[in-house]
Design a protein around this nucleic acid. Structure first.
Lengths: 215, 215
DNA sequence: GAATGACTTGTCTTAACGGTCAGCAATAAG
DNA sequence: CTTATTGCTGACCGTTAAGACAAGTCATTC
């Protein structure tokens, strides 16, 4: 059970506790929003005292930013997207949709916190969107344009292609409750997600004019 | 004990003021969420005193429900969707996408409040989703299935077709800030929405296998 | 095994929030 | 005009929130 590292028992505990706090905070922010989540409630959910929570995260705003940053780090890592691959456009986009869908399935709470933030006008993330997301978006749009110019895919609107992919995948995290009701589930399971991914992938493939090899 | 609604000067004022309050509340709920919007802030935004606001809406929860209800009424009215028309599936779906897109453009705040609510697990609306939305959804899904069986459209996953359409259209209300950043706009204008609608419509048309007449 | 620094908690302050209530002001009805 | 109803306000209250602070506990290092 002990780790053979230079890390002390304390620092290991710290890491463990920090991430437990972050997960608790993420869940609460997702469900109740920023203002609706009190530090005390977050502390209780992480099974520590409020004062101890404040010791680890000196204020709520900072905790919120850390939760957002954690999610964004994961997204950036998983969605380097169009970066250099000898793959065909279809393969690239197929993989992109797959990754995005996985993220909705694996990190629904982070996704919801992000959604709340953007819907609220991105008071915290706006700068990040401008400095990080837009440049990457512009590059990716250019790549899609070049595919179109080379006749590799149909003539689609590149910007709105991305918007639609994002929306169609993210909705399985953010609006999961609505889908659970409509599909008559208590929770979306593996199977639902796999059907969803197939459906979305199929839509996108048709949109870009790919020959579907799976139907 | 029936109330006669006479159109006195007072009652006219009342209506005007009530809807002003609702608009203010809607905007604030959209931006700050339920907990983040104080009654005092809503009152200030509507240019009345907090006590006066409470006179019109005796508590916050009720005000919130009224805001949601207003939005849902509009949606239901506009999205009777597949109800009886001699139109082709393509025409019906095209109109559906158009209506949904219009709603995102005309009622972005209501849409955002709804989004916050669903993302938060629909604590207020869950019952409504079960009792109203699901039956309509089931009917609409059946219609799409029948179209497929008659060979009128491609074999798509009906449930997820709706989810994708909803997500792809609603995103233009909920995530407008993100798009503004990415498209380099300060506000999405008429033109952006028209491009967006074309793009989304085009995607959906291809997804259901309609021959597009403009490419 | 004591000093040191990391961790944890109890108590308190200050501010904001939702909501009440008594009474005043404006309008409508008789 | 008089009265009843409706609309509105100032003062106030109980609760909860974020966070400050001091004091205590525990693990690590010397």
């Amino acid at each position: 059970m002990e780790k053979k590292t230079k890390r002390t028992k304390q620092s290991i505990n710290r890491e463990e506790l920090e991430s437990r706090i972050l997960r608790s905070a993420e869940a609460l922010f997702a469900e109740k929003g920023y203002s609706g989540s009190s530090m005390e409630a977050i502390a209780m959910s992480a099974n520590i005292s409020k004062q101890n929570l404040i010791y680890y995260f000196p204020n709520k705003e900072l905790l919120y930013q850390r939760v957002l940053k954690e999610m964004l780090d994961i997204w950036i890592e998983k969605l380097s997207f169009l970066e250099a691959h000898g793959d065909t456009p279809e393969a690239v986009i197929r993989r992109y949709v797959h990754e995005k869908m996985q993220l909705s399935r694996l990190y629904p709470n982070g996704s919801k916190v992000f959604a709340h933030e953007i819907i609220s006008g991105a008071p915290v993330l706006k700068e990040y969107l401008i400095s990080h997301l837009k440049p990457q978006f512009d590059r990716d749009v250019e790549i899609v344009k070049s595919w179109i110019n080379k006749g590799l895919i149909q003539n689609v609107d590149p910007e709105h292609l991305f918007f639609t992919i994002w929306a169609a995948t993210q909705t399985y995290a953010d609006f999961s409750v609505q889908m659970e009701v409509l599909l008559g589930r208590t929770k979306l399971d593996e199977n639902d997600f796999s059907r969803a991914e197939e459906a979305v992938t199929s839509f996108v493939m048709r949109a870009i004019g790919a020959k579907k090899n799976n139907e």
